[in-house]
């Protein structure tokens, strides 16, 4: 690991000042320290946010919940209000990593976790995300875990997490403090970005900005499911995951909020699919139409071609279960 300066800010404003060029904020550290050992990340300053007052899960005025950025994944999944009112979020968190890691990993840090692309992790390989301009080793290389939607000629990496997929289905918001002390709110669906020709940027955070909380809207009710397909039963990243919040209106689908993990550089959300499902009677024919629309522009890279039919099947399984086992 390269040497760095370790600093503890005495407030959020101070943190913003310290987070200049070459600095990285650290909270749980489970992803960042791993990457620093491999010299994928080589910050010359670590700004330890752990002593800032960014903990706690509190109700909001409109009936939602505000999850502090430093709330651990374990604490969030164990909170009785989250378990009861946002089960898709608790389920998604419990599907990721291990208890040891979730005891350390935080809400803000988890949103900022980086891709698990093999080429990103190997500093001897080309990677436009790690070192812009060096090319992409995964295109035409080993790409079993890579994107089938929204990829670019520069990068086909995926966002690997589970929590953010559920947050996307729930239409949560990220609260961000700017270095000047003002704050802004960004929908989770717009927080992560597609790679385009700047894949080094995972999300819309600007230099010096700090995530302070994630805000959940009032409970959506309905059937909430998180289905994760992976190579082993526990402690593995998703090959495909689906977060669903489905409300039935009698015999028809009132609304279906859906988000998909491991398909793209961000949790994938396609409002067209939700519009297609709303107001319709559940049937496999309808679910296939939804999958057709979702996967209209899907493109395999060779080793990951299987993700296209796997996504269809996973979506069908989730929609059947969420709508009460329609045939």
């Amino acid at each position: 690991m390269r040497p760095f300066q370790y600093m503890r800010p005495d407030g959020l404003g101070h943190a913003g000042q310290l987070l200049g060029d070459g600095a990285r904020p650290i909270a749980g550290g489970t992803n960042l320290l791993d990457l620093m050992k491999l010299e994928v990340e080589v910050p010359d300053r670590l700004v330890d946010l752990n002593r800032l007052p960014l903990g706690g899960i509190e109700p909001t005025d409109n009936g939602g919940m505000r999850i502090g950025a430093l709330v651990t994944n374990s604490a969030c999944a164990a909170d009785p209000r989250i378990r009861r009112n946002y089960p898709v979020l608790a389920r998604a968190i419990l599907a990721g990593a291990t208890f040891q890691l979730r005891n350390m990993a935080t809400t803000g840090g988890n949103l900022c976790q980086r891709t698990r692309c093999y080429y990103f992790y190997n500093i001897d390989q080309p990677c436009n995300k790690r070192e812009p301009g060096t090319g992409c080793g995964a295109i035409g290389g080993h790409n079993r875990i890579h994107a089938i939607l929204g990829a670019s000629d520069s990068c086909i990496a995926t966002y690997p997490g589970d929590m953010a997929v559920a947050l996307s289905a729930l239409d949560a918001t990220v609260e961000i403090e700017r270095p000047d002390g003002t704050s802004r709110q960004v929908p989770v669906r717009e927080f992560h970005r597609l790679p385009g020709d700047t894949p080094q940027l995972d999300n819309v955070l600007e230099p010096g900005e700090v995530i302070t909380a994630v805000i959940l809207p009032p409970p959506a009710g309905g059937r909430q499911l998180y289905r994760k397909v992976r190579d082993r039963a526990s402690y593995a990243f998703a090959l495909v995951s689906v977060a669903a919040v489905v409300r039935m209106d009698g015999d028809t689908i009132g609304s279906a909020a859906l988000a998909f993990g491991a398909l793209a550089h961000k949790p994938w959300h396609d409002p067209r699919v939700e519009q297609l499902l709303a107001g319709q009677a559940p049937s496999d024919a309808l679910f296939h139409q939804a999958a057709d629309l979702l996967l209209q522009d899907a493109e395999g890279q060779g080793e990951n071609d299987f993700k296209i039919p796997l996504t269809r099947r996973t979506l069908l399984a989730v929609l059947r279960e969420a709508t009460g086992g329609a045939a």
């Binding site: 550290g29 489970t30 320290l33 040891q100 350390m104």
Partner: peptide, 9 residues
């Protein structure tokens, strides 16, 4: 709480 001591300073 159990944690991985390799992934924290």
């Amino acid at each position: 709480q159990r944690v991985n001591s390799c992934l924290t300073l």
